[in-house]
């Protein structure tokens, strides 16, 4: 494998490559993210942003209490977010645990949502603490059951103790399982990476190893998708594109609950990576409660009065 011609797959080349990355100016990143969050998006721009955000949502349920019924309801909602308004776009994907992939795929097909992808969280999500054989099998299972996108977690313990090549080889191995059958999203779990420098390093590591998307968090650890973290990851995909002419996607997940939060993310994307990334194929938002808030804001814009949570579905 060539790894974009930037590393040769050996420990030393990976180490040297990540070492030469410039450090992140943490104060500067926080200030820039805070500044971009003050942008005011109104009227037609807001309407566009809401619809764009809906089309980027990876509608997610990752609970121990998930049932087939809940997953099916979620799939129906993903396809027709507001049954009273067919102009609402469908979401980007449905994101479920591995054993629910088949149920989700079957239900989506049965309602005619053949091109709505199912994403599976894989590789012993959310901790990633399992043997490699289990992780590979986990991924294979999900793809066979119909997952078109694999959200894998990295081994944060290995990353933080400096065993970078282990993390790298793990991603490469999962990449090989996915081949052209499934998109690979690599979850960095930035809440456990401590510094923005680590976020930048992990982003490059994942991109070099063959990630199609880099994703902030599992949603099980706080803080999750904070603005500075997303900013650093967007800078990474932008700079990686300059180096390789390959566009890698970004998926913030966790803690994005309101329309305002979502629109702030879109502003970050537009101002950092560029408008090419304002597309569900390159930017997704992992969320569950967010969709209802987007729908309520959309109702407010079309009806002219404030909406109530009583008029959107609970799950």
């Amino acid at each position: 494998m060539s790894f974009y011609g930037l590393v040769d797959g050996s420990d030393s080349s990976l180490r040297n490559y990540l070492k030469q990355l410039p450090g992140v100016d943490q104060v500067g990143a926080e200030a820039r993210a805070a500044m971009l969050a003050t942008r005011s998006i109104k009227t037609t721009s807001k309407a566009w942003a809401i619809d764009t955000a809906i089309s980027m949502v990876d509608l997610t349920t990752l609970e121990g209490a998930d049932t087939p019924g809940k997953v099916q309801a979620l799939c129906s909602k993903a396809f027709r977010p507001d049954p009273n308004d067919l102009t609402v776009p469908r979401v980007g994907a449905v994101c479920v645990y591995n054993d629910m992939v088949g149920i989700a795929r079957q239900h989506l097909d049965s309602i005619g949502a053949h091109d709505l992808p199912v994403a599976a969280v894989s590789t012993a999500f959310p901790s990633g603490r399992a043997s490699m054989a289990v992780k590979l099998q986990d991924t294979e299972d999900a793809i066979i059951a119909g997952a078109a996108e694999i959200d894998m977690v990295i081994d944060r313990g290995a990353f933080l103790s400096g065993r970078l090549i282990e993390v790298f080889e793990e991603i490469v191995a999962i990449r090989e399982v996915c081949r052209d059958r499934a998109h690979l999203k690599v979850i960095l779990e930035t809440g456990e990476l401590v510094t923005l420098d680590n976020v930048r390093k992990a982003s490059y590591l994942a991109m070099l190893a063959g990630a199609d998307f880099i994703k902030t968090s599992t949603g099980k650890v706080a803080p999750a998708a904070t603005a500075p973290v997303v900013l650093v990851m967007l800078e990474a995909v932008r700079d990686f594109y300059d180096l390789t002419k390959v566009r890698i996607g970004v998926k913030p997940a966790g803690g994005i609950r309101t329309t305002k939060d979502a629109i702030k993310q879109l502003v970050l994307v537009n101002e950092t990576a560029g408008p090419e990334w304002l597309n569900p194929s390159l930017f997704r938002i992992g969320a569950s409660a967010l969709l209802n808030d987007l729908l309520m804001q959309r109702m407010k814009m079309s009806d002219g009065y404030y909406a109530s949570p009583n008029y959107v579905t609970i799950d």
């Binding site: 002219g304 009065y305 404030y306 909406a307 109530s308 949570p309 009583n310 008029y311």
Partner: peptide, 8 residues
């Protein structure tokens, strides 16, 4: 009027 029309 906003009190009156608010659905919640």
């Amino acid at each position: 009027p906003w009190f009156a029309s608010h659905m919640d």
